[in-house]
Structures are given as C-alpha cells and as structure tokens.
Write a protein that binds this DNA or RNA. Structure first.
Lengths: 191, 191
DNA sequence: GTCTATAAATGGATAGAC
DNA sequence: GTCTATCCATTTATAGAC
C-alpha cells in the first residue's frame, strides 16, 4: 500500500528532524554536517536527500516544527480566571519555551544561520503565533498594541538573560511573577 | 625602528578587524571565510596569520573590541541629575548599542559561533561591563541585585525585538521611556 | 530506499620562496 | 610581510549500482 509507505516516510523524516535538533543543541545550530546527521540516524549522507532537498530544507522543517510547538503550547494556556493569573501563566510558558532550547530560540527568533530564509509556508506559522498571542493577551485585558510589544520584549528578555547568563539556574526565572505585577500595574495605574 | 613596525602592525590588525566586522554584518557572523576576509583588505589568506593565530583568534579580538566599545560608552554616560533621567539615558545607550549591530550582539551576548570560547582576558572585559553597569544603576538608586537583573532583561529584550522584528523602524524604541517609568515605579512604589 | 563512489567546491592552515 | 603552492580535511550534492 502506498499509504503504509507514506507513513514510514513521514516517520523517518521526523526521526531525522529529532536527530537534527539533538545535534543543534549539543554542537550549536550550525555546528553539524549532513554526514553527522545521517550517521546519528544510522544512514549515510546521500540517503537524507530522499527525505529533504538539502540542508536548508531541514532548517526550514525545524523552523516550522518549532513554531508549531509554540502554537500548540499557546493553545493549551488557560484563558479563564483572574487576568493576573492568566498573564503569569502565559509569561511562564513563554519563558520556559525560550529557555528550554537555546538552539530553537536562535533558529526561530534570531537570524543566525547564514543564508537561511524560512519558506513562506513556514513563516506563516510565525505570524500565526503572534496573532494568537495577541488574542490571549487581549482576553486578559491587554488590548493596546504597545502593551503586547512591551510584554513580548520583557519576557523574551528575561528568558534570554536566563539562558545566556545562568543556564540551569533560576536567577531570572525568580523575577517572573514580579515582572508580571510590574507590567500589570503600569497598564492599569488608576484602577 | 621597531616602534614604527609595531605601530604599522597594530594598524593592519585593526584594519583586518574592521573588515571582519563588515563581513559579519553583511554575511552573518559565521558567514565568511578567511579567504574573503583577506581579499577585502587586499591580501591573500596566509598573510592573515601574521596578525592572528587563526579564525578563532579573530573572533576573540572582535569579542574584546565589542566589550571595550560598550565599556567606553558606559563610561560616557551622564551620572548626575535626576535618577529617572540618568536611567533613561542608560536605557537608550544600551538599546542603541544592541540595535546598531546584530552581529555584534550575537557575538557578545549569545553563543552563536560553534566551538568559539572567548579567552580569559577577553571574558574579563565582559565582567567589567557588568560591574560598571551595576555602579551606574546603583548611583541612580537601583541597588537591589534583582533590580539590575530585571533592568538588563527589560532593555536587552526591547532591543532584541526591535532588531529582529522591526529593523530600521522604531516600534520598540518608542517604548523606551515608558519602560523606564514602569520600572522606576515598581522599584519605588511607596515614595 | 540505501548504498558506494565521486564530483566540485570550500574550508582552515602550513611550507617555503622572495 | 606577503606571496604561491599546496595539504588535508570537510562540505553539500549528484550519479548510478543494488
């Protein structure tokens, strides 16, 4: 059956992607070759071309997968309850997502891979994430566009500091709730 | 005279570094080769080894130069006057420094070059910057360690968003003063 | 779908003449 | 100090046998 074959193909594709993420985490986002990637899934380099058109196609699939993961996690966020609690949950989710995987952070949010540009389809996922985040924050009472921008900057900044300057620790993580309070206070000063 | 020769040597070294920064800005921090670098200063690759021990030594010199630039700019900051004004000046200085040069930002604050580790001498400059920043903020009334951490996260976050999502624009730059106010209000709520 | 073999280019780095 | 020549490793990618 062609269905069976397609399923196997997709499974191997995912296996390759998982291995690529592992290499990116251990050797840096650009610190691995197709030979290494193939070896880590028990193949030789040319066989990878059965599943991907080349290295940039692999980066593109990783880019799309990363944004799909983020989108799914935003979707799971509780949106009912006290606005402050909702925002704390959202802040923690974003913080964790960034800190968990520095390589993913670099691929999704910084332009680190020389010459790589995400495909239009993959980039559309990035736009979906921003749109969905905007909805969540609006539901919690943050509907001013500048509020969303400031919110994003604040929590990506905390996560970036944590990942770069205290990996494995909690020096910036501890500041999360306080940062949410600071933010909420400045958005509703007279309430 | 050996003095003349040493001066010429240092000048050429700097010329090479300037060219390396240009390549890093245009082709990405890791998107250039020693051949290209040599060509851009009118040399062939082997001649570079008269001035640097290899590519990582060039990255190391760039790393040190970047932190020296930042240290100098912190030194120029006005420290007298209204604390809020001092903090606004400091915030703007940091923001500009990061946004000006994405490649420099990646080299100094993110681990983007596979295998590269700054030398102890260069890394000492990074520590100097943090110490000096701590002094400036303390002079403006921010002496709690967590306050400094939150400050750093907030303004590197704003700068990173500006550089990544609105290069050449001012979407996050416009939020700077408001962010300082938010920060100051949360640090001195009952004054 | 996976392999061997290999192309074709590029990388950092060194030897030695000038 | 700069060069030519070259080494040697590595890269992505392709051709074609099985």
């Amino acid at each position: 059956m062609s269905d069976r074959r397609a399923q196997r193909h997709a499974a191997t594709r995912q296996e390759i992607l998982d291995a690529a993420w592992n290499l990116a985490r251990s050797h840096g986002l650009t610190g691995w070759s197709l030979r290494e990637l193939a070896a880590s899934v028990g193949m030789r380099a040319p066989s990878l071309y059965v599943y991907f058109d080349g290295k940039d196609a692999i980066y593109d699939a990783m880019f799309a997968q990363g944004y799909r993961q983020l989108l799914e996690r935003i979707g799971r966020l509780p949106t009912a309850g006290e606005p402050v609690e909702v925002l704390r949950g959202a802040a923690r989710e974003f913080f964790d997502f960034y800190v968990e995987d520095a390589a993913r952070h670099q691929l999704l949010f910084l332009r680190v891979v020389p010459g790589f540009e995400p495909s239009p389809e993959s980039y559309a996922l990035a736009r979906d994430v921003v749109a969905r985040l905007r909805e969540v924050l609006a539901d919690a009472g943050l509907d001013r566009p500048e509020a969303v921008d400031l919110w994003t900057a604040l929590f990506t900044g905390l996560a970036s500091q944590q990942a770069s300057n205290d990996p494995g620790g909690d020096r910036w993580q501890r500041l999360l709730d306080r940062a949410v309070d600071m933010f909420v206070a400045s958005e509703a000063p007279a309430t």
